[in-house]
């Protein structure tokens, strides 16, 4: 019964238009090769540097639907695999997103997998080795993966504490691709395009990003991400003054510490040309 629902359920996950992705290195080739071998992939890198966009792009390129799950600390195995629900005629099984992808041959992207509970990380193990199957414990069923199914996870090594880290036994199952903020010229290109701002404005925003990333480990857990720079760019685009845009999109979200904010604000002001600066 449930299998009949699959194509319809997954069709919502098909990606029809090409998501813009600016390749930074050989990540497209590596991912394509991993997919060809149906190897699970781990995207390592700080938040907001293009991992999600990359998977969307690859799913489009490979012509597969994409099922994305953002992990959080209450995410359990049942949330991934599925559970019984009550219906007038009795209990019915409801597939979780992972089961849906496994059955339908989608790419399943588990974002920030470390955030999930331990039991959630363990249910993916059988999918990542020769078994390629998903055990549905509650249902007493072993779902073999569709030949086109592939699992991708993301992982930010930067901000996990020692208590919260991927287990070695999990890490070793994946092919890893490392992501970082792109080189300034490339990042400026991305920001200009995504926020629809001028090249000069984008380059200014990249400077802002560099200043904040210099403070990584100096009180900031992470510098401003590409995503944040794009947000600031969109505010500029909508007519916000530069200092207000930077404050709202970057300085305020990034830290609660007044000293740090003031120092970063001053460094940003120092690195922007008078026309752009506050």
């Amino acid at each position: 019964m449930t299998t009949d629902l699959m194509p319809g359920a997954l069709s919502a996950h098909a990606i029809r238009d090409e998501p813009y992705y600016r390749a930074v290195g050989d990540e497209i080739e590596i991912f394509a090769a991993a997919y060809a071998g149906r190897l699970p992939v781990m995207l390592k890198g700080p938040t907001g540097c293009g991992k999600t966009r990359f998977v969307e792009h690859m799913a489009w390129r490979l012509g597969r639907p994409l099922v994305t799950v953002a992990a959080h600390e209450d995410l359990t195995a049942a949330d991934l695999a599925g559970r019984f629900l009550l219906a007038p005629e009795g209990t019915v099984w409801q597939n979780g997103p992972l089961t849906m992808a496994v059955r339908g041959g989608a790419i399943c992207y588990l974002d920030e997998i470390v955030e999930a509970r331990q039991d959630a990380t363990v249910v993916i193990h059988p999918l990542t080795d020769a078994r390629r199957a998903l055990p549905l414990e509650k249902k007493g069923e072993l779902v073999p993966a569709h030949p086109d199914f592939q699992l991708t996870i993301s992982y930010n090594p930067g901000y996990q504490s020692a208590v919260k880290d991927l287990k070695e036994s999990t890490k070793q199952r994946f092919v890893a691709i490392e992501f970082d903020y792109p080189a300034p010229a490339v990042e400026a290109e991305i920001v200009a395009r995504e926020a629809d701002v001028s090249g000069e404005q984008a380059r200014g925003l990249i400077e802002v990003g560099l200043r904040s990333r210099n403070l990584r480990g100096q009180g900031l857990a992470e510098g401003a991400s590409t995503r944040m720079l794009i947000h600031a760019g969109k505010l500029l685009r909508a007519g916000a003054p530069v200092d207000a845009a930077i404050r709202a999109a970057i300085l305020l979200p990034i830290t609660d510490e007044p000293d740090l904010r003031e120092a970063l604000g001053a460094a940003i002001a120092a690195s922007l040309p008078a026309g752009l600066a506050a």
Partner: peptide, 15 residues
């Protein structure tokens, strides 16, 4: 002092 160290680090890359 602390603000200055941060300012310097943000601009030049090292505290």
């Amino acid at each position: 002092e602390r603000g200055l160290v941060l300012f310097g680090a943000a601009l030049w890359g090292a505290p």
